[in-house]
Design a protein around this nucleic acid. Structure first.
Lengths: 140, 140
DNA sequence: TTTCAAAATTGTAATCATTACAAAAATATG
DNA sequence: CATATTTTTGTAATGATTACAATTTTGAAA
């Protein structure tokens, strides 16, 4: 369990008023680090925050990504996943079990953009294939 | 203008019956190489193929990606873009003008996945930021 | 060429994630 | 405490994608 006060000050430092629901949502992202969809966050936090609205989850995540305390992952065709880990790292999507895995990656392992005058805010490195567990089971 | 016969044989070699609409859609992807959405393909080809249905465009692109003669790009939040260039290359999304740019990249510039037993089918390297043109105009 | 089964296409309706928006509630400030 | 500002809510709208049954086209056998 992560200290509430830490999350509050973290949000505050990033220009986000640390309202209770925002703190809970950030806490969920950090603790679960499961790349959840809006719906996952909403339905799981509903137990803890009665009366939570899905719109609030959408609003909060939009705020988080605009303030860069979370990153939106567009690796899926039909939904956005969110990650509170804003440091550079890679993602692997298994096309059999649909699992999404992190793997570590440093900035200097990634090629820089070979185009003059472009500025880069976000680096996304996504791999797709079959994870070891599914391969062992002979699913391919 | 690319030779129809070449596209037909290319599709055939990849297990796709080279029906007229499929040939046109593949031709569009190759010639325009503009990372179109389904809607762009549909509305532009409608002039050339009267009676074309949007469902056919969806079906065809699903077939193309499953046969790996095209790749789906999930760099946008709300829509899928398609690319007939299945060779490894990078994409840059400008968050000011929404432009999508290709840049070249070789397989060996990309770090391999450091996870034992995983097999990789697709490599996606997406950068987001501001393109040189928007930066020159002082939009940021 | 004709016939016919299989495959493809169409058009409409359904689905589902996301956004818009106005009203209500919570928060912060003096 | 009073009030202006921000946030949240709930519902309705939007828009991309999919489901599906009916129709059309294709391709191969006779």
């Amino acid at each position: 369990m992560i200290d509430d006060a830490k999350i509050k000050s973290f949000l505050g430092q990033n220009g986000i008023s640390p309202l209770p629901k925002r703190v809970k949502i950030m806490q969920y992202l950090i603790e679960k680090h499961n790349h959840p969809t809006v719906d996952m966050i909403y339905s799981e936090l509903l137990h803890e925050i009665p009366g939570l609205s899905k719109t609030t989850v959408y609003n909060t995540l939009k705020l988080f990504t605009s303030k860069r305390v979370a990153v939106a992952l567009n690796i899926e065709d039909n939904e956005i996943r969110y990650d509170a880990d804003t440091a550079i790292h890679g993602h692997f999507k298994c096309r059999v079990c649909d699992g999404l895995f992190d793997f570590s990656l440093t900035q200097d392992q990634l090629p820089d953009i070979p185009m003059q005058g472009f500025s880069v805010d976000e680096y996304h490195y996504y791999l797709k294939g079959v994870c070891s567990s599914c391969r062992e089971k002979g699913l391919e």
